[in-house]
Design a protein around this nucleic acid. Structure first.
Length: 492
RNA sequence: CGGGAUGUAGCGUAGCCCGGUUAUCGCGCCUGGUUUGGGACCAGGAGGUCGCAAGUUCGAAUCUUGCCAUCCCGACCA
């Protein structure tokens, strides 16, 4: 029991930290508020990224790259956007160091190397991108412009948490320009669907699509759409956002195009992004007290094979059989690792791969080979069974799909069990404290009420779900009339 | 930036109140060997600016002051 994990019940935050660090995904770095993504965590991110990238390309987008630095004058061009991010920006003021004359071996900032204009390290790239788009768009023939960027951004957060909120994080940001409002709105909703599909079908995390209230809206957007996921501690996590930016950025950066009628018009814009925060969502949605649970479709390792040697003479026999199984699995496109390292015994390897969340484990010893079987264990249910070597690869392929579906259903059942309706303030508070999760309740639509509910309970309106049924009701706080329920939760 | 706590080996820790040989223990690490069906065992070994600085003292991990860092709770947030 060398690597005992903290359990969910003992300390949820510690459990999460243990999973990230001991599961080998990431670690704290020497830089305050930043993290190091370790190879296993990065492999997971690469799988997620590749799939998302494929989906972006299928919907007509291309990738490009824009500068890390945003001159302050560009940054401040769209006022609301600038104001929204101003409090969390890292700023470059100088471009040179020099030897400290008073302290040998130390460096100081060279006061002669002060920049005339400060550079903001991008907290998001709207400003630099729209400044660039201005030069790319003249005619309706240049539209739509559908570009995505894979990048890092910096937001100087007060408090950080691995994957969920770090000072620097990896993400993708799509920035599109369209000739009409409708086209831009359609794009915004299309990308929201892409995110929801990715979350549900690949990450096995059920999400609710919705629109944010004005108070929760992205700085500079006309509408912010989001996908909201529920974590096992009953808190919600915003897993992705898609913004309809209207003509705000076009006007701020003077991006106009000549339409078919030979008239100048401002373009319509969207932006949308998901980040490494998705990894945090994945961890908290599926993992258990034994460790991570990786959804097979994006798991860095889908299958691990552990040989169980008995005496030197068994090694070539087992290795030989394992080689056959590995080539069969690989032929079906399955990511498989043969863990024949000699520095850990089988029990240690079992526990280690459970901690890392590998969906399927195959154990092979002489006993199995004599009977033409292997021991197959699935991570999601912890079930073990003996399976014939005949047709094993096909069986594993089907099993991986079954596991994918099963962990999605498990997460969905959890969310269903933690989604309730509240029709009075008392009921609302009670549900929030005792049952936790999403609470569907009436709200009078005012920012003041939203704020007061937040102050009293720490619960925020996560979203107004799309295709929300309309029904008459009374606001849980003020009793004023309301036309629809909105989704409340405490959130990360 | 406000309130609270904590800094001892890669990790987790004892010692501190009440100053006194060579700083404790576990895990991990290295070497050799025996092992391998749920986190092996034996033998040997390496690893420390006790967060930093100053002070008190014959003597400081221990007491005092200052600084730094981290964590938790707020505010902020993908």
């Amino acid at each position: 029991m060398a690597k005992a994990l903290t359990t969910r019940a003992e300390d949820y935050s510690q459990w999460y930290n243990d999973l990230v660090i001991k599961g080998g995904l990431a670690d704290y770095s020497a830089v305050r508020g930043c993290m190091v993504i370790k190879p296993y965590g990065y492999a997971l991110w690469e799988n997620m990224r590749d799939q998302l990238d494929k989906m972006f390309k299928e919907t007509g987008h291309v990738n490009a790259y824009f500068p890390l630095f945003v001159p302050k004058s560009l940054f401040e061009a769209e006022e609301k956007n600038a104001e929204g991010f101003a409090k969390e920006c890292a700023i470059v003021t100088h471009y040179r160091l020099k030897n400290d004359p008073d302290n040998k071996g130390k460096l100081i900032v060279d006061p002669d190397a002060k920049l005339e204009e400060e550079l903001i390290i991008r907290p998001t790239s709207e400003a630099i991108i729209w400044n660039t788009y201005k030069g790319w768009i003249q005619s309706y023939r240049d539209l739509p412009l559908l570009i995505n960027q894979w990048a890092n951004v910096v937001r100087w957060e007060m408090r950080t948490r691995l994957f969920l909120r770090t000072a620097e994080f990896l993400w993708q940001e799509g920035h599109t320009a369209h000739a009409t409002r409708q086209e831009a709105v359609d794009e915004t909703l299309q990308m929201l669907d892409v995110y929801a599909t990715f979350a549900e079908e690949y990450m096995a995390v059920p999400v609710i699509k919705g629109v944010k209230t004005p108070a929760e809206r992205f700085a500079g957007a006309e509408d912010t759409y989001c996908i909201e996921a529920l974590m096992q501690d009953g808190k919600a996590l915003q897993a992705g956002t898609s913004h309809f930016l209207g003509q705000n950025f076009a006007k701020a950066f003077d991006v106009q195009f000549m339409n078919k009628e030979n008239k100048l018009e401002y373009v319509w814009a969207t932006s949308w992004g998901v980040s490494t925060r998705l990894i945090g969502a994945l961890i908290m949605a599926h993992s258990d007290d034994e460790g991570l649970v990786m959804p097979p479709r994006i798991a860095p390792m889908q299958v691990v094979i552990v040989p169980i040697y008995k005496g030197e003479e068994s090694k070539p026999v087992i290795d030989g059989k394992a080689d056959e199984v590995i080539s069969e699995l690989k032929a079906l496109g399955i990511r498989v690792k043969y863990d024949n390292s000699d520095n850990a015994r089988p029990g240690w390897k079992f526990a280690e791969h459970e901690l890392k969340g590998v969906p399927v484990r195959i154990a092979m010893g002489m006993r199995d080979i004599e009977n033409n079987v292997v021991e197959l264990a699935r991570r999601d249910t912890k079930e073990k069974q003996s399976i014939s070597l005949e047709g094993l690869a096909g069986y594993v392929k089907d099993l991986l799909e079954e596991i994918q579906v099963n962990i999605y259903n498990k997460a969905l059942a959890f969310r269903t069990a933690h989604t309730s309706k509240a029709d009075s303030w008392d009921e609302f508070v009670k549900l929030l404290d005792e049952k936790t999760g999403f609470i569907s309740a009436h709200w009078d639509g005012s920012a003041e009420t939203e704020e007061e509910i937040k102050e009293k309970t720490k619960a925020t309106i996560r979203c107004i779900p799309l295709h929300n049924p309309q029904e008459d009701g009374a606001c849980i706080l003020t009793g004023k009339p309301s036309k629809q329920r909105v989704l409340f939760a405490r959130a990360y």
